[in-house]
Design a protein around this nucleic acid. Structure first.
Lengths: 123, 123
DNA sequence: CTCATGGTTCGACAATAGTTGAACAGTGAG
DNA sequence: CTCACTGTTCAACTATTGTCGAACCATGAG
């Protein structure tokens, strides 16, 4: 019944540490992964940045860092795995943090242009 | 002329990188420093955590990391130096980020105990 | 079962970051 | 000027991270 070894450990929402979360998000590769996750859960393989294939082990390592910090959830899905953003948990523990980080990401990629920010409110 | 070597380099607001800021804030010592700065500019010596004196060089190093990430400003003030939070600049570049981080800090320090949170509102 | 697939874990190495004492530099006081 | 005081920079060392190949594991297909 219970868990096979395929279930990975995830920290409880109450145990999330701000510094761990910030650290997990402070790496460009990992921040890119998180950005990919905004649109919804995806398989591990789909976390790879377009046009730059990194080794499976490296990707898995980054995913582990994000998972242990409580930023993402990694669950078995058939032969693959689904990686998802723990948005609700993060928002509960650190209100506004994820929104600020995700909102700022586009300014990092694109460039400023204040007017564009307004359009982002849509949803 | 004006600028002597006493002026340290600070990144321009437009050049602030999200990952650098997150990294700078991901260290407990540095996050503590930032918390001290919320109430206003203080001298370098006052950045030290109460009850735990760290070497001058170590403190200076952390301040450098924060400064180069654009989180704090470090300006000469007589024989000392004033360290201040670049709140406006950070807010302009990464809206809501600092507020989220600072707001979350107290949950990091205090401990859970849901009931206590309510009591905190009291004056 | 056997095989191919999707990912994690292990182990080794390179790179980056944290810690700290000592040297150095600018400033105010006498 | 000389001295005491604040804080930065330098250099060396340690510890933590990032990277990646190879081994390993669970699952689904045939």
């Amino acid at each position: 019944m219970s868990g096979t070894s395929r279930d990975l450990a995830h920290p409880d929402t109450a145990d999330l540490a701000l510094t761990d979360v910030l650290f997990a998000l402070s790496d460009p590769s990992r921040l890119a992964i998180v950005r990919s996750l905004v649109e919804g859960p995806i398989e591990v393989a789909a976390c790879q940045p377009a046009g730059a294939e990194i080794p499976k082990s490296t990707l898995s390592h980054h995913l582990k860092t994000l998972r242990e910090a409580g930023v993402v959830r990694n669950v078995p899905h058939g032969r693959q795995r689904y990686v998802s953003l723990r948005r609700g948990d993060l928002d509960e523990r650190f209100p506004g943090l994820l929104a600020a980080v995700l909102g700022s990401v586009r300014e990092e990629t694109d460039t400023p242009m204040r007017e564009e920010v307004d359009a982002a409110e849509n949803g």
